[in-house]
Design a protein around this nucleic acid. Structure first.
Lengths: 347, 347
DNA sequence: CATTTCTACTGTATCGTTACAGATTGCGTG
DNA sequence: CACGCAATCTGTAACGATACAGTAGAAATG
């Protein structure tokens, strides 16, 4: 856990095994530390030949700037903080996002730090921590609400960030979102095309922005294709056991739906269990459409009609967006919405 | 007597909105920066009353030490690096581990940095990076091999670390592992108790240490309970489609097994699909036992006999182990193995 | 020829923290 | 009364990088 050995003496001895610093390069090239620093960042007041020499030596030594030095002097942390809700998921949702993000960051000096929190507790806490300690250059958050206080705070403090999901309160900020409205609309279409007309919706919690997107897509779908809604009093955040039980009751009732639209892959598993518990069969008594972020549902029941939400891609988009924002690109230009894809059933 | 003392430097202006530093506290208490620093770390040469005062002011200001300052001066990064293989998982395996780790780290100054890599590429690369740049105080790695080169390198360089899985080459190091031998043994027992005698094993890739653990548990199980193995030529790392197809072929063949032991939850889903594709039914024609890290299998088929591997707990254990190791605790004392738990089926 | 203007480099101070080597004061001792 | 010794507290110099204000030398200008 310690690293120096270089005491006392003036200029600098190469000290073979130590990690190279600007001083090492300066010593080897016979230049000043400042020159080396500026040469490596391609400053205009350094001679071309000198730059070349410095770069060669730096490469040769495997020089990597000391992050603490840079951070202390410039305030640049080279860190992107990913704020995750630990009760957010059962499936590999956030892993995929992490991997997408790191794909993009791997070509940059940025590191990714995970800042978890329980969304039952204060969701502002991690954001405040990051702002107060200046521990990141950029932030990625999810589970966005229409007037999300985190978005407000981050904007107000000028911290670059990207969100997974949109807001709806006149704030302009980078985001990536899945087109949940299109998904819900298309889901209804698929069901109606299979002759289903009485459709239930397992929707997200109403405080999240995409609740409205799902609702609108669903309702215009019902209208456009001439179907009606069978109410379902539970949302995707409920414990799987609750979802199962409520779906079972619904499926046993007189006005059971003949179609279900499900807004989350993990919940779909519970819905399926509820359907089976009621003695109904997908494809025969009813059809189900679900979105999923990991291709798993068709392994469980090939009959489930699935739309893919590419969360890894979302991670990539958001990582690119935050970095662009850090580099001063206007937020308007850093917004994207991805369309649902409907893989041909099969496996 | 002539103490001209401080000339030039007027200690420091409070500058209300700035982030407080030691200097701020020094200014407010009228003490020197050094004194404040030492007071906050409860050094023995600082008066009790002074410490109290410093602590009060620090708390009042919401002082948090600047990580870059500490890191630059001491070399301590306060970072734990989690090295993850991005193709490691489909399910929420690594998320659960991340959350377990952060539970423990949340009470400490440590941050968690995710360092991903593709295990098809060079698995040493992230470890080398961390060592070369000194970017973490401790490392957590998984997918351990019997003579894992990463374990060798980390040990050699004196970097504190913990592994998810054991090695088998005379190296002593902190680890947390799931008792795969016990799992496989008990799995065979469960199957035989249900009257199954011809058992197939879906095993992990042979290069990983726990391959041997699974094999031994399985084989002693076969021996102890009087069953025989039906060979299955595929491992848990194979694409799910391959697993499904191979299982289907096996289940259609003349000597189809009447029991299957499966070493990974995601693979079990594919195995189940293969079984169903062959027209066989769990509980009737055969039984399956699988381990899982996320309670999902019984939602798919209640008949699957599942053992729970608590990956979140593993994350907690490893985080505690790395920190203890950083604090100088002997590696021998930082090893733990968790037992499979067999939740009563149902949900 | 003196002066300005470039070009190419360099020294110093600084970010926040801590290791280290002093200071200062009070007080008990011989 | 000088001395030693605790008990407290403090200034300085790093750690590695960069912003800023120079400087030296050569070339262009008047």
């Amino acid at each position: 856990m310690e690293n120096k050995g270089n005491f006392g003496q003036p200029a600098s001895a190469p000290t073979a095994r130590e990690r190279p610093t600007l001083k090492t390069i300066a010593f080897m090239t016979g230049l000043g530390v400042t020159t080396v620093s500026r040469a490596l960042k391609d400053a205009p007041d350094i001679g071309a030949e000198t730059k070349e020499r410095v770069r060669m030596v730096a490469r040769q030594l495997g020089y990597q700037p000391n992050r603490a030095g840079v951070r202390l002097r410039t305030g640049k942390t080279n860190v992107i903080a990913l704020v995750l809700s630990i009760d957010e998921e059962i499936m590999g949702f956030s892993s995929q996002m992490v991997f997408g993000i790191s794909e993009v960051l791997s070509g940059t000096p940025y590191h990714i730090v995970i800042t978890p929190h329980s969304h039952s507790k204060d969701p502002m806490q991690p954001v405040r921590y990051i702002l107060d300690t200046g521990s990141a250059d950029g932030v990625i958050i999810s589970r966005i609400e229409p007037d999300d206080p985190r978005v407000r705070l981050l904007t107000e403090r000028g911290m670059p960030f990207a969100t997974h999901g949109r807001t709806d309160a006149g704030l302009t900020h980078p985001f990536h979102d899945f087109d949940n409205e299109a998904f819900a609309h298309q889901a209804v279409e698929k069901l109606v095309k299979r002759g289903r007309r009485r459709i239930a919706l397992l929707q997200p919690p109403s405080k999240l922005t995409y609740y409205a997107h799902i609702r609108i897509g669903f309702q215009t779908g019902l209208h456009d294709y001439g179907a009606e809604e069978v109410p379902l009093r539970v949302n995707t955040d409920a414990p799987l056991a609750d979802i199962r039980d409520i779906v079972e009751v619904m499926m046993r009732s007189a006005n059971a739906p003949d179609g279900i639209v499900c807004s989350a892959g993990s919940a779909a598993i519970a819905v399926n269990a509820g359907i089976e518990a009621a003695g109904k069969a997908l494809g025969r008594d009813l059809d189900m459409v679900s979105k999923q972020s990991v291709p798993i549902l068709n392994w469980i029941r090939p009959e489930i009609i699935t739309a893919q939400e590419d969360v890894r891609q979302a991670g990539r988009e958001m990582a690119k967006a935050v970095i662009a924002r850090i580099d001063g690109v206007e937020p308007e230009l850093l917004q994207s919405v991805s369309q649902p894809t409907w893989p041909e059933s099969g496996r």
